[in-house]
Amino acid sequence: MSDLTDVASELYGRPPGEFTAARNDRARQLRTAGDAELAAAVKALPKPSAAAWLVNTMVRHLGEPVAGLLELGATLRQAQDDLDAARLKQLNKDRRALVAAVVRQGSALAADHGQKVSAAVAGQVEATLNAAMTDAGAAAALRTGLLVEAMTASGLGPADLDGVLAVPEAMGELSPAPPTRRKKGKKSEGSKRTTGKAAGPDEDERAARDERAARAATAKAQEELEAAETRAVRADDALAEADAAVQELEANELRLRSELEELRRQMHEREHELDRNERALTKAEKERSTARRRAEDATARADVARGELDRLRGPRAR
């Protein structure tokens, strides 16, 4: 599968808009070269989601921030195994700050590649980074740079990696050796006694039961914290969207008010123009009436003069 991993590494480093065409071209080249099996495997590679593409791109271009994030995740998991509550509290605070910073860097990186990161995609990227910090398997999957879907993890439990990798076999090459866990042994009351007797089975069972209960309580508290942080992020996103909507509506209101003022100004001018036209019309109608009377008088006088002329001409004509 190393050949498929190499091809996938090249394809999943491309911008989202180029992936499908590049994948199909590569599969066609392999088929032409006679490698039908690899061609079919390449053709079956799924296009990554927007969040998966961004995380893959961050792995390729933000090496130090991503490595630092995964290193802090390993430290966090060790503190969890040690049941070190005080250290876990500080490490979780550091984790939140670091994840937020890396997500911001990823958003800027996406902008450099001509891609806009929505609040939903940023949330999926954050969930993927958190999963990689809380689960060693998710960390190995992230390091491949071959994610096709975002990852999620519940508290400090294992992440669901089903279907998140283009080439699952690639993770084996990058998976770290199982970490050495420091065992936190508990001395029994018997070991403290001057008699030097070893702890009995009851004491060992109680110690193991207490440790399991402490682990469960810590895991539950961590899960509740993760859920609260997720709700806070979603609330912040909703607030940002609401702010943007308000700003857009306020800008639209200003535009409409400006247009309305312009229309009112034009209406005021038209009213004055109409008033002037009405006064001119009244005057013109009066002048027309006067002109009509004068024309009628002149016509009547002309008729009288014509009759008088005809009368004077009459005897001569006879």
Score class of each variant (00 low, 15 high):
M1P: 15
S2Q: 14
V7G: 09
A8D: 09
A8F: 04
L11I: 04
G17V: 02
E18M: 05
R28T: 13
L30G: 10
R31P: 07
R31S: 14
A41N: 12
L45I: 04
P46H: 08
P46I: 00
H61K: 10
G63L: 03
G68R: 15
A74S: 13
T75A: 09
D82S: 10
L88T: 09
K89E: 13
Q90S: 08
L91R: 15
L91K: 15
N92W: 00
L98Q: 15
A100G: 08
A100Q: 14
A101Q: 15
A111K: 13
G114P: 12
Q115M: 05
A119T: 10
V121C: 00
A122G: 09
G123Q: 10
E126I: 02
A127I: 02
T128F: 02
T128I: 01
L129T: 01
L129H: 04
N130D: 09
A131E: 08
A132Q: 10
M133A: 04
T134I: 04
A138D: 09
L142S: 00
R143E: 03
R143L: 02
L147T: 04
L147G: 02
V148N: 10
S154G: 06
S154L: 03
G155Y: 09
A166H: 10
V167K: 11
P168Q: 12
P168I: 06
E169Y: 05
M171E: 14
G172K: 14
E173G: 15
L174I: 04
S175R: 15
A177F: 02
A177P: 15
G185H: 11
E189R: 14
S191Y: 11
S191I: 04
K192A: 05
T195M: 08
D202Q: 13
E203G: 06
E205V: 01
R206A: 08
E211D: 11
R212V: 00
R212W: 04
A214L: 05
R215F: 06
A219R: 15
A219D: 13
E224T: 10
E224S: 07
E224P: 08
E224V: 03
E226G: 05
A227R: 14
A228R: 14
T230S: 11
A232F: 00
V233Q: 09
A235S: 10
A238S: 06
L239C: 01
L239V: 00
A240N: 06
A242V: 00
A242C: 02
D243R: 12
Q247N: 13
E250D: 12
A251F: 01
N252D: 15
L254K: 15
E259D: 14
L260T: 11
E261T: 11
R265N: 09
E269Y: 02
E273F: 00
E278M: 10
E278N: 12
E278P: 07
A280F: 03
L281V: 02
L281Q: 14
L281K: 13
K283W: 00
K283Q: 10
K283S: 05
K286P: 03
S289F: 01
T290C: 00
R292T: 10
A295P: 08
E296N: 13
A298N: 08
R301S: 03
D303V: 05
R311V: 03
R311F: 01
R313S: 05
G314W: 07
